[in-house]
Write a protein that binds this DNA or RNA. Sequence first.
RNA 1: GCCCUCGUAGCUCAGGGGAUAGAGCAUUGGCCUCCGAAGCCAUGUGCGCAGGUUCGAAUCCUGCCGGGGGCACCA
Length: 572
Amino acid sequence: MASTYDVLLTRLQDAFDRVAPGADPVLRTSERGDFQANGVMAVAKQLGRAPREVAEEIVKHVELSAVASIEVAGPGFLNLVLEDAFLSQRLNLLVADDRLGIDVATEARNVVIDYSSPNVAKEMHVGHLRSTVIGDSLARLNRFKGHHVIARNHVGDWGTPFGMLIEHLLDLGEDEAISSLSIGDLDSFYRGARSKFESDESFRERSRTRVVALQSGDHETRRLWRLLVDQSVAYFAEVYAKLDITLRPEDVVGESYYNDVLDDVVHDLESAGLLIESGGALCAFPEGFTNRDGDPLPLIVKKRDEGYGYAATDLAALRDRVSTLRADVMLYVVGTPQAQHFEMVFAVARLARWLPERVHCEHVAFGNVLGADRKMFKTRSGETVKLVALLDEAIERADTALAGRSDALADLDRRQLATQIARAAIKYADLSTERQRDYVFDLDRMIAFEGDTGPYLQYAHARLRSIFRRLAEPWSAGETSFALAARAERELALALLGYPEAFASALDTSAPHRLCVYLFDLAQRFTAFYDACPVLSSQGALRAERLALCDLTARTLSQGLSLLGIDAPDQM
RNA sequence: GCCCUCGUAGCUCAGGGGAUAGAGCAUUGGCCUCCGAAGCCAUGUGCGCAGGUUCGAAUCCUGCCGGGGGCACCA
């Protein structure tokens, strides 16, 4: 169904077209009315006419009867106020719609989303938080829109470190190594290997030999490698479950997956005349990239030592995603430092004709997570912070807070609830800031259950559900007459009608924070309404209307949060 | 040195051509015989600086200043 905004835009567009075909009405929500159209001034300028005169003409032509009143204001703004009956009609459409006004895509696209990407035999840490959380939200948004999402967890499962990791595994003994890995103590395993590699010459030599064996496909070496990978993937699955991330083991398609086609990638690039030998390495030199000396900057596809760099793997993956997975959209949820790398990879892929124009390919970049000192977020002792440790601490705090307000929650699984709240706190804090910016990680602030936080949104939802729990009679949403006499009711209603635009904006720009901003605004309008408009103690039509508003708000909050990967418990 | 990115209230952040620039936290002061006070209401000398484009600039362009990042074989 067309959203309320779309209805108004269509009507205005028709009127604008009669005066200046194709002109944008520039329709926005407004504090001076419900909406305002700002496009008149530009049109008047273009026509060389007085803006107010043009505005009057558009007002004369626009067909808005039974929809909205419209008037000219200031230099030529058009202010619109929705008719009560129209508002009521629009709300009833939402009441009857499980999707709350969000249409399924008319054509489902194949959307490949590359996110999370931890390293095998290494702990997941804050450095993986943003990619994981943002990528998962984008996956949920695209799925909800009806697209076919292909999640790709491009884990680091290949490269020279595996020589030392496998030798370390052998030193420990398989059983011992597996039990160490399966309890999630990946860091100490990795450190153990690392320290031997740095201090022990013979270990170093064994590691080098082992890498060669791995690369040449030695059966036993591959088996040991597979052991490492499987243990890690199982561990990642535990972390994802704890964070409520939708990535599955079958979404793991690591770097090694492309090993067999790397020769092919190089061969094709060579045939296309895109590779030049430079300093012993095979490089592509896409236009527009220079190094610090002003010379052309290479994308190194094959290293001097004959090994392949990550450019080769990324190119192979990209080619595979277009040709095999039939991607229409490819999103790479990777930090901003990789911006130039991806620009170059995309440029080379276009040159190689692996990336057709019709495929939308985008580096969904995000900023760093910083500590209170505005430097990269680390523990006090300077260690990277484990993701599970982060979540565990948040769970503890949530649990403590819950314990202090216990009675109503006696029957519930407090631990489960604390986990839901902790996830909300961490995810919302991450998602609610504009992606490209760095943000300061402050657990106190994000889990403080007041202000612009995940728990605040959950709380608003829980209060709504509480109203329905108290209801003596069975209730279900039906055709409702919305009078919206109180200001707070009208404000809430307008926000509810804006949900489809907030969703579209978040989806189209891969910006979950836009949905966050919307949901927080909605929650605030709800609590203002809640304060000013008694629901259960009101009577008759007013009560029915308010219950319907509550139901719509609860559904919108719940659905919106779910698109962010956040639960909305009924009680907390 | 070149390129990218960011600079908005004391702090953390929205707003990315439209009218008097908004939230949250903190501050101060009000609200619970009444649906959950994790709440609501009130409370402000702020768009880094200088030009430019425009009827209109926090928003677009140029330069400068400041933070962060990238710039040949670790991904």
